[in-house]
Design a protein around this nucleic acid. Sequence first.
DNA 1: ATAAAATCGTACTTGCGTATCCTTTTATCG
DNA 2: CGATAAAAGGATACGCAAGTACGATTTTAT
Lengths: 138, 138
Amino acid sequence: MITTTGEYALRAMAYLAQLPEGKYALAKDMGRELGIPPNYLGKVLQALAREGLLVSLRGRNGGFRMDRKPDEICLFDILSAVEPMKRYETCILGHKKCSDETACPIHYTWKEARDRVVNMFRKTQLTRLLEHQRALKK
Amino acid sequence: MITTTGEYALRAMAYLAQLPEGKYALAKDMGRELGIPPNYLGKVLQALAREGLLVSLRGRNGGFRMDRKPDEICLFDILSAVEPMKRYETCILGHKKCSDETACPIHYTWKEARDRVVNMFRKTQLTRLLEHQRALKK
DNA sequence: ATAAAATCGTACTTGCGTATCCTTTTATCG
DNA sequence: CGATAAAAGGATACGCAAGTACGATTTTAT
């Protein structure tokens, strides 16, 4: 239901959130620790930095670190940085014009179900992913 | 949130459901009417026939028709015939072992949200897609 | 026998995930 | 101060799956 890239972003953010504050981590190390291809993880981390969720530092002793507290970031922030959230707002019958005003037969039913997902992304803070973080190894 | 193929299947089933009972329709005609590539729609219809949702008839005067009443088919039946429903049951952090017994930090939260979607598929009958069917043109 | 239709196999296209290589930045060492 | 090494940043190419297109085969009514 979410893209692989989105999953990587969530796991990487959870990893960074449990590090000592201010500490930078390397894409390569994180990839190894989390079992994510380091090359691609680098791209994902860059995207998160571009969106202001992470701070990146180039050169020796560089890496990525959190820019905010884990309770100031929700899952929606993370996911929307790496995948198009329109996925969760489209008519199930593919109508371009489907909306509250011009609704397809199941518009409201479908909207309620998918909104449940999006609202969960919006209300859940990164902190929620941290509990028992070290049991996650995979 | 659903695959394009799934959307095609829903629309095609809705189209067939509003036809006079026992009437066969051609993949080509349906494709033209619904604005779906006829070649691909053929594949989708074949899959639906293989799963017992449609009856297919080869040769002259052939085509596809419903095999059940529209209120005896739910959206889940249709979607599961053309796409893997596992998509709606996987851990958001990608853990293979995540389950009610061995739960990741947000297992139950995530499960509740995605179950809302699946339950909607299960409880909603094809009939629900038929209202104002002819306003759908696209 | 012919024509109409599903069925089947194959090939093309696009996007996502992946892997490399090169460039740029920056701390550190001689 | 200059050279070097370590890191992100960026460009490019590959593999794979989904969606698409098309042609060959089989079935069946006329």
